[in-house]
Amino acid sequence: MEWKLTDDRPIWMQLSEQMARRIVAGQYPPGSKLPPVRELAADAGVNPNTMQRALAQLESDGLAVSNRTAGRAVTEDAAAIESVRRTMARRITKEFLSAIADLGYTREDALALLKEEEDTHG
């Protein structure tokens, strides 16, 4: 997965969100070791201090745990991961509903559109 960084927000926040997305999507499974800070930083083309801050945020969000000898790993707490995943899904759903409402569609129209899309491409 590529890193996408925009100009308007702090870089560490964007990195932290994208790491969180990788964790909830299972790219880094529960309990698995995360790559070292320097490796992730080089991959994203960012300063190691910035990546460090992003990973520290993952820890305070309960998605990662730090082990003094073995580096950083994804939490084994599947419920914590699921809760973050659910929050993300809710936000995406809300964004969809509000964008559809902006176009003048009702909730029923929105549901119908989802169904239609599902039938043709799902």
């Binding site: 100009d7 308007d8 927000r9 702090p10 870089i11 560490w12 910035t50």
Partner: peptide, 15 residues
Amino acid sequence: SVDNIREQEGKSVDA
């Protein structure tokens, strides 16, 4: 710091 500038100004350092 770059992140402070982005946070406070809502724009990149370049901008």
